[in-house]
Design a protein around this nucleic acid. Structure first.
Length: 410
RNA sequence: GCCAGGGUGGGGUAGUUGGUUAUCCUAAGGGACUGUGGAUCCCUCGACCCGGGUUCGAAUCUCGGCCCUGGCCCCA
């Protein structure tokens, strides 16, 4: 038997409906904030991603050469593609741009819980607004999107400026090394490493920074910084809106294009891969030949959200199964058409089974049965049977449609 | 790339001196029954992840691979 490729999944209709439900909630939330959906190619030039993240990531991409000898790759993320798109065709649009996307990405990595080789991201990019309000909007939107999805989460918000200030003056290589320790929360390793270098004071400052829970505490350690006003304003907006978050100035991003505000979200009920969202302010467009526009965005690991949500109760619209005797088949199709035009999910028998067997099947797959036979043809009416209660009644077609649509349409 | 545990009908289980696999539930298809059958009864279909080795004989022993689950690494 053929297996599906490693790290990929099949989704049966029930699972698909769950995913679509959550996806739609996320899209709707973003749309209400003015974020409009964009779509980029599923494969891009390899260079797009190596320019953004370095050559090292080629090993983790589905990279290939096409028949024309082009170096391509399945997209491992969306932000770079959106920024390329911005440079190609978004530069002249009125700022700020509010874009969102829901798309599958591909990474050649070892699968584990919440990590697949084909996975879906929902994200937004706010392009061209370089203010505390912009930083705050993206965080508030992330909070709204996750809340509408119904997932339990912890939001951590930080800013890179205080840490960069403490590391200022060290060689870039050393800064990266220290940030790697912080990113892993390996304080013991960091203390040892900095102790060797005679930087014990720096270690004390960094640990103090990680413990800060308000901007005020941060600036007591770092002193005044140019970014102080922006940081304080961003946090003030979050506080005024009353969202639940933890200030976390220990969030470290080694990549150069992150410029300021950063935030991460964790789901407490996942395993080793428990980060469900990452976001922040960045500057990328200049890498792809555009202006040095300020941007801010986030990406949600959609599959991890679905894992975190666990079993979801789906409440779909009712389904009608039309069952009929042989002489009523034509009438059955007429009735089915009327039901469908009214927005009711309607299925007719294709197996040419007896009435009883049709009803038996309908009981497993539908909520209502519309029974049609000689009697109904003569009366011009239909028999509507509620397959949950077993109650049934002969009525006009219009009344039957009205009865079923009370419980929803599609 | 590394470590650990796994892989037996669609789903769940059992299966060692190596000897035709088995069982339960359920699903599916067919039949009886032909206006309630959402029932009952009968029948059918259906699996040892793949490949090499040892052996008269491998689900079982052995080697390799694939895949799954969790962890490490990485995480744009």
């Amino acid at each position: 038997m053929l297996q599906k490729p490693r790290g990929t999944r099949d989704f049966l209709p029930e699972e698909m409906e769950r995913r679509r439900l959550i996806e739609t909630r996320m899209r709707t939330a973003a749309r209400r904030w003015g974020y409009r959906e964009v779509c980029t190619p599923i494969f891009e030039h390899l260079e797009l991603f190596t320019m953004k993240s370095g050559e090292g990531i080629i090993n983790e991409m589905y990279a290939f050469e096409d028949k024309g000898g082009r170096e391509l790759t399945l997209r491992p993320e969306i932000t770079a593609a959106v920024m390329r798109m911005y440079v190609n065709e978004g530069k002249v649009l009125p700022k700020p741009l509010r874009w969102c996307y829901f798309a599958d990405c591909f990474r050649y990595e070892r699968p584990q819980k919440g990590r697949y080789r084909q996975f879906w991201q929902f994200g937004v990019e706010l392009i061209g607004a370089d203010t505390a309000s912009a930083d705050a909007e993206v965080i508030l939107l992330a909070d709204a999107v996750l809340r509408t999805a119904g997932v339990a989460f912890d939001l951590h918000v930080g800013h890179l400026a205080p840490m960069k200030h403490l590391l200022h003056g060290l060689p870039a290589e050393e800064q990266r090394e220290i940030m790697a320790y912080l990113d892993k929360h390996d304080l013991a390793g960091l203390e040892e490493r900095l102790g060797e270098k005679g930087l014990g004071d720096l270690f004390t400052s960094l640990v103090g920074l990680m413990d800060c829970r308000t901007p005020g505490e941060v600036f007591a350690i770092t002193g005044d910084l140019p970014e102080r006003e922006r940081i304080e304003e961003t946090f003030a907006i979050l506080d005024a809106q009353g969202i639940a978050y933890t200030a976390d100035f220990g969030i470290a991003r080694g990549l150069d294009y992150y410029t300021g505000m950063v935030f991460e979200v964790f789901a407490p009920n996942l395993g080793a891969e428990n980060q469900i969202l990452g976001g922040g302010a960045y500057r990328l467009a200049h890498l792809f030949g555009g202006d040095d526009v300020a941007s801010c965005g986030f990406a949600i690991g959609f599959d991890r959200v679905m894992v975190s949500l666990g079993e979801l109760l789906l409440e779909g619209e009712p389904i009608a199964g039309v069952v009929c005797t042989p002489e009523a088949r034509a009438r059955a199709l007429e009735v089915a058409r009327a039901f469908r035009e009214a927005g009711i999910r309607t299925e007719v028998d294709l197996m040419e089974r007896g009435l009883g067997a049709q009803l038996s099947h309908a009981a497993k797959t539908a909520d209502y049965a519309v029974v049609l036979g000689k009697r109904e043809i003569e009366s011009g009416r239909v028999t509507l049977k509620n397959l949950h209660s077993g109650e049934q009644q002969e009525m006009t077609l219009a009344d039957a449609i009205a009865e079923v649509t009370r419980f929803g349409t599609c």
